[in-house]
């Protein structure tokens, strides 16, 4: 056996670590991709450094497409990418990308030696801050390529230490999504199921950011069961078990209580009131309540209104919070920007 074969042999055995990027209009593709990743036993990556497969869910154009290219340059070899536009093609795209990843000949193609030419970035400037320490100000954008982050949301922050001093919200690429919204309009199945699935989806994202991976995977499995048409009786037992565990967990209470608390005088939509813990518990309870009306034509919550409020509230809500708490806050609010774009298209 020569050495070439040894590299190929190792490539056939490496675990696949996908980094999933969702762009506006890609919710349906993301849900399918997440389900396939779970059933194939792949473990999602949290950053390009630990990923070897870049999966783009949805039609990437404009600024989100630039961000995707940027991240692709940061992926070390061996690497492969898949673009999933249509949920129906997800399985084939992922299989093709995996084949590329495990093909020694294609992986040996030389990558550019230096990703960035150019000069080193400048040193950070200092500024006044809350604690009077005059620390360096770093401009750190959050999104659009960030696991567990709403599709199409960019928060441009000014950080001093790990405290967000300023936050500015931007929503690039929404216009290109063309008003397609999965949860609200074009998704398959009766609204009752989509409603329950969206509660589970938001809870799963928040749980994964909070570090409770087991509960997050359980929530995703339930969500996929709901969307693929499992009978309500079949879902009921695991759903109640999951909801009970999420509501009772002392660790979640400790890490989420008081995070992203919205004062009552900010007049939030009732679904978003309180702190991250209250929102998580409300999602668990709402998913259970939706169980009885799975296959009925229930009215869907006004997700566009919630997203609108969140986009307007995020700058003041995030100011003064720590970086990790900011990510938890955004995950707990989980604005559906596609619904927002759809409303604007419908209104125009």
């Amino acid at each position: 056996m020569d050495v070439t074969d040894l590299t190929a042999l190792l490539l056939r055995r490496i675990p696949v670590r996908p980094l999933v990027v969702t762009v506006p209009g890609g919710t349906g593709a993301r849900l399918r991709v997440e389900r396939l990743i779970r059933t194939r036993g792949w473990y999602p990556a949290a950053s390009p450094a630990e990923a070897n497969l870049l999966v783009v869910a949805g039609p990437a154009t404009g600024e989100p497409a630039d961000a995707v290219e940027h991240v692709w340059e940061q992926l070390p070899a061996p690497r492969a990418r898949a673009a999933v536009l249509d949920p129906g093609h997800a399985d084939g795209e992922l299989a093709a990308a995996e084949a590329t990843l495990r093909d020694a000949f294609r992986q040996r193609r030389p990558a550019p030696d230096s990703v960035h030419g150019g000069a080193e970035p400048e040193m950070a400037g200092r500024g006044e801050d809350r604690d009077g320490l005059t620390l360096d100000q770093l401009h750190v954008p959050l999104g659009p390529v960030l696991p567990g982050w709403p599709a199409g949301l960019v928060v441009r922050t000014v950080l001093q230490g790990d405290v967000l001093q300023e936050a500015e919200v931007d929503t690039p690429g929404l216009a290109e999504a063309g008003g397609r919204t999965w949860w609200w309009g074009e998704g398959p199945g009766p609204p009752g199921r989509r409603r329950a699935a969206r509660h589970l989806d938001t809870a799963a994202t928040l749980l994964s950011i909070a570090g409770d991976d087991r509960a997050a995977v359980a929530a995703r499995r339930l969500r996929d069961g709901v969307l693929t048409g499992l009978a309500a009786a079949e879902v009921a037992r695991p759903l109640h078990q999951w909801a009970r565990r999420v509501r009772r967990s002392p660790l979640l209470r400790w890490s989420l209580a008081g995070v992203g608390a919205v004062p009552a005088d900010a007049a939030p939509p009732p679904e978003l009131a309180g702190d991250a813990l209250a929102r998580l518990r409300r999602h668990a309870t709402a998913a259970e309540a939706a169980l009885d009306r799975f296959d009925q034509d229930v009215p869907l919550p006004d997700w566009a209104e919630q997203a609108q409020w969140t986009v307007e509230a995020l700058p003041w809500l995030l100011r003064g919070s720590e970086l990790a708490l900011a990510r938890l806050t955004v995950a707990s609010l989980d604005p559906d920007l596609e619904a927002l774009a759809a409303r604007e298209v419908a209104g125009a």
Partner: peptide, 8 residues
């Protein structure tokens, strides 16, 4: 998150 670093 897909952007370039602005500071060192």
């Amino acid at each position: 998150s897909g952007h370039d670093a602005a500071e060192h």
